[in-house]
Design a protein around this nucleic acid. Sequence first.
DNA 1: TTTGGGTGTCATAGC
DNA 2: AGGCTATGACACCCA
Length: 650
Amino acid sequence: MQIAKKYFSEGLIQLTILLSLVGVRVDIDSYLTGYYSPLAEINLGPSSAYIQTPFHILRDTLDGNGVHPKCPELDYFFASRRLLDEVRSLGSPRFPTQLNAWLVHQVSATDKAEHGPSTSENTDSSPGLEDPGDEAGDEAVRGRAVDQTSPDLGQGPGAAGACVFPQQVDETKVKEEEEAVPVTQLAHSSTLEQENLLEGNPTLSGLVHHYAPPPTSTVVDWSNLLSVTDLAELDSLVNEHLSELDSDMTSAISQDVSLHDATVTGAGAFGFGSGRAESMTVAQQRRTTRRLESTNSTLSDASPGMAVGFAALPFASVCNLTGNVTSQSLLGGCLDEAVFDQINQLGLEGLDTIDNQLMNSLGCVDSQGLEDLDSDSGLSLESSYGAPVSPGSSEMSSSSSSYYEDEGGATGYSSDVDFLPSKGIMDHTTMWPPVDLSENVWHDHSYSSPAFLNKASLKLPQKTERAFSDDEDEDDDGSRLDERELSRDELRARSMCIPFSVLQIVNMPVEEFMEILDCHGFSPEQVTLLRDIRRRGKNKLAAQNCRKRKLDAITGLQEEVERLQAQRDRLLREKRLTAKTMGAVGHQIKQLTRDVLARLRDDSGRPLSPERFTLQCGANGSIVIQPIRRPAVSTSAGNKTDKRKKGKKQ
DNA sequence: TTTGGGTGTCATAGC
DNA sequence: AGGCTATGACACCCA
């Protein structure tokens, strides 16, 4: 046996070198020499191989081949990188693979002498695995497992037995913490070696691939799945709930089989990888393909019917529906309803996201509206309507000369001439200063169109034209045009001998307006008219502004509605896809759980019944085998409680 | 004749 | 207290 171990060790090293040279990640030293759990790698941040080393990029490029494959840092990197690839390729908990290796370890440590063939051999029902080549491969795995086992591994989980039941938790807890990482590494290493050995060995690879259907389309779709880009949010969410799950794992009764390699790392890997998933190279896709095949190989080696490959097919096919798959489909780290709770909370998060986006979008509208509301200027027509300055603005009011500008005031509809000037009154127009007569901008509907600034394009109400045409047919065209443009207030002002235009009255500062009222000796009627003209003029502009803002708000809301509808449709599609994916993952997890439990043995050597036990995964990677609580127990307890309550009532 | 949009004006609230 | 702004409501005009 020592010769066989030595043979396999040396051969493994050589094979590792060869595989590394051709780009296949094989890491033995990382698990034999150091504590480099992927969780620690992630937590350590820059020290993490996944983060710090650029080899994961260089490795996939031609330039990356320049890195020596036996570089120690590369080994560390390959350890985490391989784990990430495994998780990425599987998209589900890796515990079958790891537990498979763990069982190998168990057999090699304790039960080999008693049971002879390894557990994997016992569980192998595939006829192909009965092939001598497979026996050799299995033996190789066993040999490596034994060979790589450090002295303290003999006291590891294998020595502790297949299952650690609750009463053994206290005794083994400390030991588990100390030995979890090495055991995990051993498990991973052995499993990986098995995979890589299968890949590197044509015979074994062919055998395994015989049982692991590697549909190319599925693999490619899986790669597409990994190129999902909308996973960051889900990853963060899942990470949070993984920590919550960790706190809930109060009854750890099994060995730490480092499922966190698949769970936490998986979440972290997708969290990190989602951002750059789009840039996944062809080499990565090929590697992913190879990983998936090797994963299938491993599980097919154990139980073809329960192989992950079969279970992953619907999952991958579901994920094939679109590339926009949420990360729940890729997590698979939680084995219980927490996954679906995360999905549920994902929906809430999504709603929150929608709400936030909606609020942000509405906030823009509101802010704009508030800006308008808070604006001292009642007019914001400067940019929209060609009005140079808001007449009602404080800035405008502070400028004593600005109201003489040619401002596009709204034309009052002079058609409603209830105060038509008489001929005598019209004579007062000669008393007006020339500047007033030259300012025909009163009637300018520049609010609606800047073109109204052009007098030639003025469009006067027919009624106005008709009204003035009755009185001023004999006037020349120029003066008649001026009269046509007079608003009702302008006519009133003229009739009241007020030597100011409406525009002046409206736009002059309040101080100046008050001074005019006080110093010009106007009669009370004239003062009232001046105040009314000013009030109506300002209110007219305010109404124009108000309507403009209303139209803008309506337009903005319509655009917002369209955008939200599109977003809603997209989220609904994602929701449906996520539900399908999670259903497939749940099914897969159930299958894998049954597979794992079928491989485990209790103290009497009988396989654990899936009906009696279940697997729970903690955020720290620990796998807990928990007995299923019978509903009848709780029911009976509930009945007892009810009886007690009834007794108390009686 | 009806209808919808545009506009001015009034009333009112709030600043 | 008075002015200003915003806005709803109303009336009118017009295509």
